[in-house]
């Protein structure tokens, strides 16, 4: 039967190879997004050759890393110097009771590879510091700010703006989350929103004020969505807009954010040309000012 079939179509350009050179497993694994017009084979190949760095494998970084891995991002970097603690597990869902005491970067890597062994995971068991930031950020297509402190947030912003590297910012506290996407010089940056960090103690941390685990869950999932959209070039990014989420009233609001021409980081005459020009010890103020 097969033979007669082959004979009937002899001479035509036949192929049993999968389109876009995707393996059978890849077609099955990614089938629900492959059939989206905005993804397709082309978008999937872009995802598979993309590199995303996640700073912080905590409440935001956990869902972001898992969704990016699930979508098939080719390389994921995890920067985190902490070890998994029992008190993390209420929201940091990439870790588990079994991994308490292990470095978070390693615990996250194991969870990512259990979910999708195709992802190449690079771990950095260190803190992002002014001294290593530009090196750590080298070679990535997109950065997820999953940090839990103003110092690291300003550092990510300043370093990404210097390097022209797009990133997703997010912050959470209690039942509130906010997020925005920064494409340096195409839209405003985090310093256009807040010029410098509030003085230490002025804003409570999640440790002091608490946070509902699902709030960073929602925000981290949005950050991963922005990374995916950026990579495949689909839709509108959260650039020039801040999305504000209140879980108690269950409302999303957004406000417009304009680029500040006088911004020390991304303004017309930027002052922060290298990270040594900022005092990251206190409120992340620019020394030259």
């Amino acid at each position: 039967m097969r033979k007669s079939f082959e004979a009937r179509f002899l001479g035509q350009k036949r192929s049993t190879k999968n389109p876009f050179d995707l393996s059978q497993d890849q077609i099955v694994r990614y089938s629900r997004q492959l059939i989206l017009k905005e993804v397709g084979g082309k978008g999937q190949k872009k995802l598979m050759s993309s590199k995303v760095l996640i700073v912080g494998a905590g409440g935001l970084g956990s869902p972001a890393a898992l969704y990016l891995a699930a979508a098939g991002v080719g390389r994921i970097g995890i920067v985190d110097s902490d070890k998994v603690d029992l008190s993390n597990l209420q929201r940091q869902i990439i870790h588990s009771t079994r991994t308490i005491g292990r470095p978070k970067a390693v615990s996250a890597k194991d969870a990512i590879q259990a979910l999708n062994p195709e992802v190449d995971v690079v771990t950095f068991e260190e803190r992002l510091e002014p001294e290593n930031a530009l090196d750590l950020l080298k070679g990535w297509d997109f950065v997820i700010d999953g940090s839990d402190n103003f110092r690291t947030k300003f550092l990510i912003n300043d370093a990404c703006v210097i390097k022209g590297l797009p990133f997703s910012h997010a912050g959470v506290l209690r039942f509130i989350g906010m997020t925005t996407t920064v494409i340096p010089r195409q839209g405003p940056c985090y310093r256009c929103l807040i010029r410098e960090a509030p003085p230490p103690g002025a804003v409570p941390t999640c440790q002091e004020a608490g946070v509902l685990g699902t709030v960073p869950g929602v925000m981290g999932a949005i950050q991963a969505t922005e990374a995916i959209k950026f990579i495949i070039g689909a839709g509108n990014l959260l650039v020039g807009r801040v999305l504000y989420f209140d879980a108690l009233s269950m409302r999303f609001d957004q406000f417009e954010l304009r680029r500040n021409p006088k911004c020390p980081s991304c303004g017309d005459r930027p002052v922060i040309k290298d990270l040594s020009q900022v005092d990251y010890g206190n409120v992340c103020r620019v020394k030259a000012e």
Binding site: S15, F20, I27, S31, G41
Partner: peptide, 28 residues
């Protein structure tokens, strides 16, 4: 009618019949 490309997906079941057809069409 002569096809520009042919894809043999005998042995495939839904939804992969559609997934593979769609991917093959995307390449045209």
């Amino acid at each position: 009618m002569k096809a520009d490309r042919s894809i043999d997906i005998r042995g495939e079941v839904c939804p992969y019949t559609f997934v593979k057809s769609k991917l093959a069409l995307e390449e045209l």
